[in-house]
Nucleic acid binder design. Structure first.
Length: 608
RNA sequence: GGCUCCGUAGCUCAAUUGGAUAGAGCAACGCUCUUCUAAAGCGUAGGUUACUGGUUCGAACCCAGUCGGAGUCACCA
């Protein structure tokens, strides 16, 4: 428990004072869980004290071990061992036995507790022109886990997403559907509605490419190619890089799409109606996917509502000389002092950019939620943007400036390389979910059960655990084959540990026996030690916004339990006291697994 | 090219934030089910932590350089 750690710390401090007449603080002391291959529960590393005390580590360890043995409360220390300056402290069986009772009497022992703050977590934030994909899944799982663990730590957390429902992308889907759709609907052709909209986006790109390829044969095109600046570019390379320019200048389809966007901005009723229809399809589809993933939101922001926000802040900042205006009328902020550059906030024509909108949205959220902290779960390609945004809000002096955090995550890649929508190598979220559920169902049928609810839990656990176990800052390789693996370091492995516990508990029924006098063995002490570290693990995960720490913790616990299960019999224990103790222990382990996995959005089945 | 991040077993990932002999899973090869669920357990094999130097009692982790990869450097989002 954290109490015993603090106790060892205090005794060490007073010990140093008594023995060496020197004052040290808790920061000078390093206590870690003892490595498995050594005897002990906690280790005091004495090297850090050696310099301060002008003594050899060995010497310090010897003296302190005596002092700790005699002064640690209620003689909890059963033995100490010194190995090359590492002072290993073994706590007594009775200490661990009462630690178990403490866990039983305090159902919150596993959570850290903090003074509550209002925190807002933004995640998912999709575009509305195509379905969710694998990258969104990583985002969503990170966001959800952040929400859960912040909440478990006592905070008041709200979940939001900003839906990018406007702009040229959705206009492409709208245009393709109205040109070629012939009145088709998701219902009429039996397709999931967000996929339906995505199909029209793909159709647009296809038609556009056709048009572009044809244009490349024209004289205009040939002339442009011959007069290109970068002579070293091949024809293919040149036209690849020229595509965007073509879209904005020569393309007929591009012109139509841009006209549609203008009509939308002018509130043209027909366009708005079409836009609403297509977005409604997308939202219905997203809703299904979110439901499968088990996530929900407290509030949705729509870019169509927020894209004009932030202008007043820019005006205000200009007045207060935090921002400045250029000769052409555009407004900028100078972030060179923070090691960044100059950033545009408002175009010369008075229209806003992404930055303007983010400025306004943060302000709005602060007003609506009173959030002291705001967490943005967004991919690491936007690291610079958020650095600039936060620096800017800091320069502006907003009251929420210090609580802003970008939970940045690396791209998800396939074994063959990056996912590219153009090359059709994007892993669709719904497809992926279907594949893991199929895999779980196949495995279940071999084991002769077919409870769909259990299969769902197993499949989703496999997928979720596979993704959240990886440190979010790193790019990860997603191997679809490995993700549906149900053996080894996986979600189902952890579920199986839980299920084995439930099976024993069911058989044990209402057995009520006392374990007075029972002394836990080495395996049981290790399990209790792991459980006692749970709240600190979660605390680290919260501090670092890193759910992977929890995934690793629970996996280690499940692994240890599987071994214990193999070696030690609970229901056929050598004594009633042993059985009573073990029943209590495994119940706590089961609850711990369930609680910690719930923080990652992973559910436990009762049987599998 | 500037800035930022990354490089650990064949593959996918860890390593308690500078601590002990760098650990797991997958893949490979052995062994263990009339036993509380074998989606499990045990064992074998696999490493110059990209490379070179430095800092110190101690470096995968900090510093410098080199090599390799990614992101970003829009009046896009």
């Amino acid at each position: 428990m954290t109490d015993i750690l603090k106790e060892i710390e205090n005794v060490t401090i007073t010990g140093v004072k008594v023995i060496y007449q020197k004052d040290i603080t808790a920061e000078d002391i390093l206590i870690t869980p003892t490595k498995k291959e050594h005897q002990g529960d906690y280790t005091l590393v004495t090297f850090s004290l050696a310099k301060k005390l002008q003594q050899s580590p060995q010497n310090i360890a010897v003296k302190l071990s005596e002092y700790i043995k005699q002064n640690l409360l209620s003689s909890s220390v059963s033995a100490t061992e010194i190995v090359q300056g590492f002072l290993n402290i073994s706590l007594s069986p009775s200490f661990w036995s009462s630690a178990l009772d403490e866990m039983v009497s305090d159902p919150d022992y596993w959570k850290p507790s903090h003074t509550p703050e209002k925190i807002l977590v933004e995640f998912s934030s999709p575009n509305t022109n195509k379905p969710l994909h694998l990258g969104h899944i990583r985002n969503i799982l990170l966001g959800w886990a952040s929400y859960k663990m912040l909440k478990a730590s006592g905070h008041d957390v709200s979940r939001v997403q900003i839906v990018n429902d406007r702009g040229i992308a959705i206009c492409k889907s709208m245009l393709a559907w109205s040109k070629f759709g012939e009145g088709q609907t998701p219902e009429s052709i039996g397709m999931k509605s967000d996929h339906f909209v995505g199909e029209w986006y793909v159709r647009f790109e296809k038609e556009f490419l056709k048009e572009y390829t044809a244009w490349q044969q024209t004289d205009t095109s040939k002339e442009i190619f011959d007069n290109r600046n970068e002579k070293e570019l091949s024809e293919a390379e040149f036209f690849k890089s020229y595509k965007n320019h073509y879209f904005n200048t020569y393309s007929k389809l591009g012109l139509e799409a841009r006209e549609m966007l203008l009509k939308w901005e002018a509130h043209d009723p027909v366009t708005i109606q079409l836009w609403k229809k297509m977005n409604a399809w997308v939202y219905a589809g997203f809703g299904e996917t979110y439901k499968k993933l088990g996530v929900e939101f407290d509030k949705l922001y729509y870019e169509s509502d927020t894209y004009l926000l932030g202008k007043d802040i820019v005006e205000e900042g200009l007045k207060r000389k935090v921002f400045y205006q250029k000769g052409d009328g555009s407004i900028w902020v100078d972030l060179t002092q923070q090691g960044l550059d100059h950033k545009l906030l408002l175009r010369a024509d008075g229209t806003s950019v992404y930055m303007t909108q983010d400025l306004g949205t943060a302000q709005k959220r602060f007003e609506e939620f009173g959030a002291e902290r705001m967490v943005y779960v967004v991919g690491d390609e936007q690291n610079y943007h958020f650095q600039a945004l936060f620096a800017m809000i800091g320069a502006y002096g907003a009251p929420y400036a210090k609580g802003l955090h970008h939970l940045s995550y690396g791209m998800v890649e396939l074994p063959e390389g990056k996912m590219k929508s153009r090359e059709g190598t994007v892993v669709d979220a719904d497809d992926l979910i279907a594949v893991v559920l199929k895999e779980a169902a196949d495995a279940a049928s071999e084991r002769e059960f077919n409870d769909p609810e259990v299969i769902r839990k197993i499949g989703m656990a496999a997928l979720k655990f596979f993704i959240v176990k990886v440190d979010h800052r790193k790019r990860m390789v997603f191997d679809p084959k490995a993700s549906v693996d149900l053996q080894g370091q996986t979600g189902p492995y952890i579920q199986n540990a839980y299920v084995r516990i439930q099976s024993i508990l069911r058989k044990a029924g209402e057995i009520q026996k006392e374990h007075t006098g029972y002394e836990p063995n080495a395996d049981e002490k290790l399990l209790l030690n792991m459980l006692s570290q749970c709240s600190q693990v979660i605390d680290s995960a919260v501090r670092e916004y890193n759910p992977a720490l929890i995934a690793n913790y629970t996996y280690a616990l499940a692994k240890e339990y599987h071994r214990y299960y193999h070696d030690v019999k609970v229901l056929h224990a050598e004594s009633d006291a042993a059985m009573a103790f073990r029943l209590k222990l495994i119940r706590i382990i089961g609850e711990n697994i369930q609680n910690t996995m719930d923080l990652l959005g992973i559910e436990m089945p009762e049987r599998m």
